[in-house]
Simulated assay, not measured.
Amino acid sequence: MSEQIAGERAAVAPASAEVGGRAVLLVPHRDDSVDEAALPGDYRRILAIVRAADGAVQVRAVGEELGLQVEVRGKLEPLRAKLVKLADRCWLHKRGDGKFTARL
């Protein structure tokens, strides 16, 4: 039974790959067979913040919720990249005005 549990945990753990000699986490595409548990922890937290918002959110609002120094542009750009990656993988929707909403 412990082998089965270990196999199930490995199936939902974020996949990693090696790029340029560095291990990087992969954000899977959203579909029926992949649930939110497959995302790395920081991506799950970002997704939860966007879902909890009353509407579309700006990167700055997500950064404030995460406790980042939002007045420093360099602190928001990595966050913006994560939001865009979630949108590219169909976890979020990026609107034309640059704001993000949760996909249902």
Rank of each mutant, 00 (worst) to 15 (best):
M1R: 04
M1L: 06
M1P: 05
S2I: 05
S2D: 08
S2E: 07
S2P: 00
I5N: 01
I5A: 08
G7H: 14
E8Y: 02
R9W: 03
R9C: 01
R9V: 01
A11P: 00
A11C: 05
V12D: 02
V12A: 01
A13E: 11
A13V: 05
P14L: 10
P14S: 08
P14K: 14
A15W: 03
S16D: 09
A17G: 09
A17M: 10
A17K: 13
E18P: 00
V19G: 04
G20L: 15
R22N: 06
R22G: 01
A23K: 15
V24P: 13
V24W: 11
L25G: 01
L25I: 02
L26T: 14
V27M: 13
P28Q: 07
P28I: 03
H29I: 09
R30T: 02
R30K: 15
D31C: 15
D31T: 03
D31G: 14
D31V: 02
D32H: 12
D32F: 08
V34P: 15
D35W: 03
D35Q: 10
E36W: 04
A37I: 11
A38Y: 05
L39T: 07
P40W: 13
P40T: 08
G41F: 14
D42C: 06
D42V: 13
D42E: 14
D42T: 13
Y43E: 11
R44Y: 05
R44P: 00
R44N: 02
R45H: 12
I46K: 11
I46G: 01
L47A: 01
L47C: 04
L47S: 03
A48Y: 04
I49Y: 11
V50C: 10
V50R: 09
R51K: 15
A52T: 09
D54G: 14
D54H: 12
D54T: 08
G55R: 11
G55D: 14
A56T: 03
V57A: 12
V59E: 10
A61L: 04
V62N: 06
V62P: 07
V62Q: 05
V62S: 03
G63I: 07
E64T: 06
E64L: 06
L66E: 04
L66C: 01
G67L: 08
L68E: 11
Q69Y: 01
V70N: 09
V70F: 07
V72S: 08
V72C: 04
R73T: 02
G74N: 11
G74H: 05
K75Y: 04
L76N: 06
P78Y: 03
P78A: 07
P78G: 07
L79H: 11
L79C: 01
L79F: 13
R80A: 10
A81Q: 10
A81V: 01
K82E: 07
K82C: 05
K85W: 00
K85H: 02
L86D: 07
A87Y: 00
C90D: 14
C90E: 09
C90K: 12
L92E: 11
H93F: 00
H93K: 13
H93C: 09
G96A: 15
G96V: 03
D97I: 04
D97F: 09
D97G: 06
D97C: 04
D97R: 04
G98K: 09
F100Q: 03
T101F: 00
T101H: 00
R103H: 00
R103I: 10
L104R: 13
L104E: 13
